[in-house]
Amino acid sequence: MTRVLRIIGLAVACGLAGASLTGCGSGAAGLADTETSQEMTRLRQILYKAPALPDGFSVRPRAAWRPPFKAADRDCRAVFDTAGGRAPTRALVAQAAATFQGDVLGEVAAVGLASYSGEEAEWHLKDLGKSLDGCPGLEAAKGTEFRESELPVGELGDEAVGAQFRGRLNGYPYALNLVLVRQGDTIISLVHTGLAKVDAKRTQSLARAVVGMAD
C-alpha cells in the first residue's frame, strides 16, 4: 500500500501508566536527569491535566492500552505497541500513555506520547510507517483476524500515517483505527477502537485534538 507522509510536527514521552511516570533513558545518553524529568512531567500533564478531547470521551485517563490480541508479526507488534507506551527505545527521552473511554459501545481512545533526542523521532516515524506497510492484516488466536485498509489522516503535525483494521476479535466484530504522527521531536500514536466499525471522522477529530494538546 502506498502512503503519503505529510510534513507535520509532534513530541514523544517515556513510561506512564495509570497515574505513574517512569523514566526511559535508553539511548538518550548525555541528557541531564532534570531534562528527562521535565520532559516526563510535560507529557504527563498533556494526558492527565484536563485533556481537550472531543465530546463523548471521558477526560479521566485510564491505564495504558494493551492490545486485546497477540500479534505474531513483528511489524504489527511495533505499530500497536507504540500506542500502549512501548515506543521504539533508540534515543528515547521519555514516554507516556493512557486510554480514554468513549460513549459508543466498545469505544476506547489509546494515546501514546514519546519524546526523542536528536532527529530520531523523524527516523522512528519512517520505520513505523514501513512497519505499517508490512502489516496488511493479522491473525492471532482462533477467531481473531483483521485486514487493513488506508485511513486518510489529513494535515497533522509534521508527518502522519494512518490505517484501519477491520475483522473479528475472538469471533466478534471488532475494529480499530491507528494514527501515527510526528511533531518535532515527539511521536504521537493513537488507537481508536470500537465494535464492528469506527468512524474515521471521529478518529481524525481525536488525532487533531491530541496533536493540539501536544503542540
Rank of each mutant, 00 (worst) to 15 (best):
T203V: 06
Q164L: 12
P51R: 02
A87G: 10
Y174H: 13
L47S: 05
A163I: 03
A109D: 01
G102Q: 04
A209E: 07
D103Y: 15
V104G: 04
L10S: 09
A163W: 00
Q101A: 14
F80L: 10
L128Y: 06
A78E: 03
A94E: 00
S20L: 13
V59H: 15
V181R: 10
D199Y: 10
L31Y: 04
I8L: 09
A63L: 15
L156F: 02
D199L: 11
L31H: 03
E119H: 14
L125F: 02
P61Y: 07
K49E: 09
C76I: 03
K70E: 06
F80C: 08
K197Y: 10
A13P: 01
G171W: 10
R166L: 11
S131Y: 05
L16S: 05
A200D: 04
R208K: 14
A91D: 02
A50F: 11
P173T: 03
G102R: 04
C14W: 01
A87T: 02
V210I: 03
S149R: 15
I188R: 07
A71V: 13
T2G: 14
I46Y: 00
N177E: 03
A78I: 01
L5D: 14
V12I: 11
Y172W: 11
G84N: 01
R74S: 11
A163L: 08
W65K: 09
Q101T: 13
V161W: 01
L151K: 03
G23D: 07
G25R: 02
M1S: 15
Y174Q: 06
K197P: 10
G167W: 02
E39H: 08
S149H: 10
P51H: 06
S189T: 05
R42V: 00
R6F: 07
V111M: 10
D185I: 03
V181Y: 03
A87C: 14
G118P: 04
G112A: 08
S37G: 13
V93E: 01
L16C: 12
G25P: 07
P61K: 13
F80P: 01
G25Y: 04
A141D: 07
T203L: 03
V179C: 15
